[in-house]
Design a protein around this nucleic acid. Sequence first.
RNA 1: GGCGACGUGGCGAAGUGGGAACGCUGCGGUCUGCAAAACCGCCAUGAGUCGGUUCGAUUCCGACCGUCGCCUCCA
Length: 470
Amino acid sequence: MSTTSPTVGGPRLYSTLSRRSEPLEPGPDGTVRMYVCGPTVYGPVHVGNARPFVVFSVLKRYLTRRGFAVRFVSNVTDVNDKIYAAAGREEVPSAELAARYLAEYVADTDRLELGRPDLEPTVTGHMPEIIDLIERLITVDLAYPSHGDVYFRVNRFPGYGKLSGRRLDELLVTEPGDAKEHPLDFALWKGHKPDEDTFWESPWGNGRPGWHIECSAMAQSALGPSFEIHGGGIDLAFPHHENEIAQSEGANGVPMARIWAHNEMLELGGKMSKSEGNIILLRDALDRWGRDVLVAFFLRTHYRSKLPFGDPALEDTARQVETIRNTILALDRAESAPGTGINRELADTLVAARNDFFDALDDDFHTPRAFAALFEVIHAIHRAVDGARPGLAQLQATRSEFVALLDVLGLASLAVSRPGAPVEIVALAREREIARAEGDFARADELRAEIEARGYEVRDTPEGPQVTSR
RNA sequence: GGCGACGUGGCGAAGUGGGAACGCUGCGGUCUGCAAAACCGCCAUGAGUCGGUUCGAUUCCGACCGUCGCCUCCA
């Protein structure tokens, strides 16, 4: 990732368009409006698809905690070449296939427990808006019908290439395309083909929308012609977002988005993409690692850095997550046997770390630095619990502050005490205590092993044995 | 070929024109019947390579090497 300007009052985000970090200001209606390109539902979503979902969901969380009203819109593409192809392979109607994978996408991302976007529009739900936008582009001469299709006239839009830093004459052109005036003209509307089992009526005959026009239409419909943040994976910058800009700004004459925010790719020995076949499904990753580890994994690296997905990094994250849980356990313990007064170091660290935490997130959503601040708090808590243990009031205030920080990152679940051990485990632990008191350590160790075999762990503390699930 | 991002300790990952955060691992110690957790301490004289600017560069500039993304569907 490249460097960004230091924080000067308020959140800033790096924009691919200006190639620098920009102050984030709400729109005229006082809300931050954010549109993020979601998946095409032709199969189960993979962990790469989850990165923008996590990043922008947590960004919304952060901005909300920061006092902004945020409207987060993320579309789902449910009409597309790949959907027809997949439907053909599975021998089901394309609409049925899209509906099924849409439901699975929602179910899989729900497991991340980061809430839903405020609106998740679909292509099929926006045909009139799409057709209307195409008509307007034809009216202003930015688009033309040809052979049952409609194409965007790239040469007539002066800013074409401004997002991705390309010039028309530099772009590699392969196929001439007899239906198009210019090889880089792209389809807004595609005439119906016999092997496609869905189509919509339009002024240009039956057909369906091209890929890019849907986002222009849906974003405008949900957020207006101009909004604050447009997000998505960096691989979408060209041509998808470039084309969105051409369509929306060509039709509306105002900047589509103030900030173009792009997350970098997940890597799994090369880019993870469905067409390459090197895929880890989100649901499989959730099964294996759980949402806490997965969410923390995405957040411990900056969103604009490439992120290698692999066991070492996930195992590393799992240990970090465990450390956070242990901190809560330490607070539990301390609150059951509080000290007195105020621990100055703890209080001071908390204030400083809180500032660092929010400064980091203000600076281009710098979650790795926010994590560093979190660990400052963690160490201060342990030192206070083990050393000059403060009174109950400070312990409780510390806990709520700590949990509030975790909550900003969507990790407050780490602070939820796991369900207490069942009675039979408690009984074993009690038996072990008796054995220990009698000096029968062999028996005590046997009982520890028995408890561990049943999925629990005993930790002897000054406050007595603590039994946790593991 | 063009556009773009990036190369920091065993691994992951930050900041910074002049002391290289933070996490994981490892090592030593404290605590502990044991164990775990936790705490204390240690672990890059060097930041892909080579030049340049500078009193001074990991940080700025250039070249080269390398990795990755985009240029076709892709989060």
